[in-house]
């Protein structure tokens, strides 16, 4: 049983240099053009690691100080381990075309609401990426940066292996881009939409990331630093009871005052203003409560959180309605 096959010109037997992802090859000896099929492999690229260990550590120490993390984290937190790894991402670049029809409601200064019909055509380039292995507890699902020095993957680079299907990734990419096209139209009530996603590139991009593990009071936390931009991408950090107390004090006071003012506002000003105060107050209170309840650990990045995030588009809808 043969496991390895040499790729040579079927016409003269000469050596052909074929790169991964090539579809056609020209024999340098007899100039025969050969079509390569069977293995539709994806081109593999990598971004060069430009952030060195020192800079990654600096980013980590800066991160310790920011946000509502434990106040003594910068003194007590001890970095135990730092290493970089090239994470694989499916990256899909495409031109998105779409027609979206529908209507929005608009209220004029006299309070009359009318239906405004809209039709939008969209043509835009889109970039989409998704991690090509299980994300585990790394907390990076999508890339946020698409600029970097493209290099071949360094020979001895530590990489995480690809364990998801590229065809599934393409499907996901097309779906995601279609959604973004429809969103781009900014139409609330959609009656018709048709989108086309014209693929441009599909590559397997290895992206360098620093993984830093640190210890805080006998507990192990981590953060990841982008190896190209030097920014913190994801992480877990201990929270602080003081911030939690402050959050609920501020949130329930501000929220309570707004809701408390809603009643006199409804009575003396107008119902709409009262309702508005009621909703804003409620949102502030719920947001503060969520932080109070779960703020003992600060989680950043694409990590499953113990509470559901605030659904911003839904809230916008509620506010518009009010």
């Amino acid at each position: 049983m043969k496991l390895t096959f040499g790729l040579s010109c079927p016409s003269c037997g000469g050596r052909i240099d074929v790169e991964e992802g090539d579809h056609l090859a020209i024999c340098p000896f007899c100039h025969t053009v050969s079509k390569i099929e069977g293995e539709d492999d994806v081109k593999t690229l990598a971004y060069a690691l430009v952030v060195d260990e020192k800079k990654a550590l600096e980013a980590a120490h800066k991160w310790f100080k920011h946000g509502f993390k434990a106040r003594d984290l910068k003194e007590v937190g001890k970095i135990k381990e730092i290493y970089h790894v090239y994470l694989p991402f499916w990256r899909y670049t495409a031109k998105g075309l779409g027609v979206v029809c529908g209507y929005n409601y608009r209220t004029d200064s006299r309070g009359n609401t009318e239906k405004v019909y809209k039709e939008k055509e969209i043509m835009k380039d889109y970039d989409w990426s998704h991690i090509a292995c299980d994300a585990g507890d790394i907390g990076i699902m999508h890339l946020r940066n698409y600029r970097g020095e493209v290099v071949p993957l360094p020979e001895d680079a530590p990489t995480f292996e690809v364990t998801t299907s590229k065809d599934d990734a393409v499907d996901m990419g097309v779906q995601e881009i279609s959604k973004r096209i429809v969103k781009e139209a900014q139409i609330q009530n959609i009656t018709f939409s048709k989108t086309f996603v014209v693929p441009r590139h599909f590559v397997l991009l290895y992206y360098p990331v620093w993984i830093i593990r640190y210890e805080y009071k006998d507990k192990m936390y981590f953060l990841t630093v982008d190896g190209v931009t030097g920014q913190v991408l994801s992480g877990r950090a201990p929270g602080d009871s003081v911030w939690q107390g402050l959050a609920i004090a501020t949130g329930s006071t501000v929220g309570g005052v707004l809701v408390g003012l809603a009643l006199p506002a409804m009575q003396y000003v107008d119902a709409r203003a009262g309702l508005f105060l009621l909703i804003i107050g409620g949102i502030i209170f719920l947001g503060a409560y969520s932080f109070f309840r779960h703020g003992s650990e600060i989680v950043e990045g694409d990590i499953e959180k113990p509470y559901k995030g605030v659904d911003i588009p839904y809230l916008k809808g509620v506010l518009k309605w009010a």
Binding site: L3, T4, F5, G6, L7, S8, R15, I16, V18
Partner: peptide
Amino acid sequence: CGTMIYID
């Protein structure tokens, strides 16, 4: 020898 090898 520079041959591109395919692993089946």
